[in-house]
């Protein structure tokens, strides 16, 4: 094996075997993956800004607002429904609940990572399970949000100038066709991240349960999936602001 590189950890730090950033390879790669993912989401949200600014905004009092293809809709007039309460104007309440659920599931993930540092298998299991439940709840909420957005609303004043109810990729009752397309694309892309996050969390939860991490001697894998999960929460914070609030 004359050609095999041998790592000599002596003298110069450039010879390998040291961690200049004091983070493991896996954790660093997760950070750089998240950085690239952050670029993707930034590009999507900035595209939303570009397209929104290239449409006229609604001028006038918010109480006079009606849906039209002529201008960009006011988000709080679009997202004003919550499950089981029909026909009541409750702007942004449901999205607020979703935000709160995701932040809470982020907190339980931090608690799982903290328990992992203490080698406390039982606590890791408990907090990871709460995280998974939080993620699934968020996905359920998003499914309802999408269904409501696609089906549309039957309140007369909310029906737009083209008399089309609901939304699809080429047409929607709320505003210009790009409005619905961007809604599907951005919240869909984020929702898919949540979905894969739940799947990854479940795999790691399973491994914790059967004792893989205990045998390995550390719970770093929980930290890595934790980074991904927090990132999903972070993206939602931005989607919430740029899509729903502004």
């Amino acid at each position: 094996m004359a050609n095999t590189a041998v790592v000599v950890n002596e003298g110069s730090p450039w010879r390998g075997g040291v961690e200049p950033m004091k983070a493991s390879y896996g954790k660093l790669m997760m950070w750089f993956f998240l950085l690239s993912d952050a670029f993707t989401f930034s590009a999507l949200l900035i595209t939303y800004g570009l397209i929104r600014y290239s449409h006229p905004a609604f001028e006038g009092a918010i109480s006079d607002f009606a849906f039209s293809q002529e201008y960009w809709p006011i988000p709080e007039m679009v997202y004003d429904a919550i499950p089981f309460v029909h026909g009541v104007h409750l702007p942004l309440v449901f999205v607020g609940i979703m935000t709160f659920i995701l932040i809470l599931s982020s907190v339980t993930m931090v608690l799982a990572v903290e328990a992992g540092h203490r080698m406390d298998k039982k606590a890791v299991e408990k907090w990871m399970l709460w995280t998974i439940i939080g993620g699934l709840t968020f996905l359920g909420c998003q499914a309802w949000e999408w269904a409501h957005f696609i089906e549309g609303t039957d309140i007369a004043k909310n029906v737009a100038s083209n008399n089309f109810i609901g939304a699809n990729l080429s047409m929607n009752q709320y505003g210009p066709s790009n409005f619905a397309a961007l809604f599907f694309f951005i919240t869909g892309f984020h929702g898919f991240h949540v979905f894969s996050g739940v799947m990854i969390n479940f795999i790691i939860f399973y491994q914790v349960t059967v004792g893989v991490m205990e045998k390995r001697g550390h719970y770093e894998m929980v930290e890595k999936v934790g980074l991904y999960w927090h990132f999903v929460d972070l993206v939602w914070v931005f989607v919430f602001t740029f899509f729903y609030l502004i």
Binding site: P20, M21, K22, A23, L28, W31, S106, V107, M109, V110, G226, L227, H230, F231, D233, L234, V237, F238
Partner: peptide
């Protein structure tokens, strides 16, 4: 975003280079 990245993702307590 600062609180999520610095505290939850622990970036605030990592090396400056990272």
């Amino acid at each position: 975003a600062f609180y999520i990245v610095a505290e939850f993702m622990h970036l605030g307590h990592e090396r400056k280079s990272l």
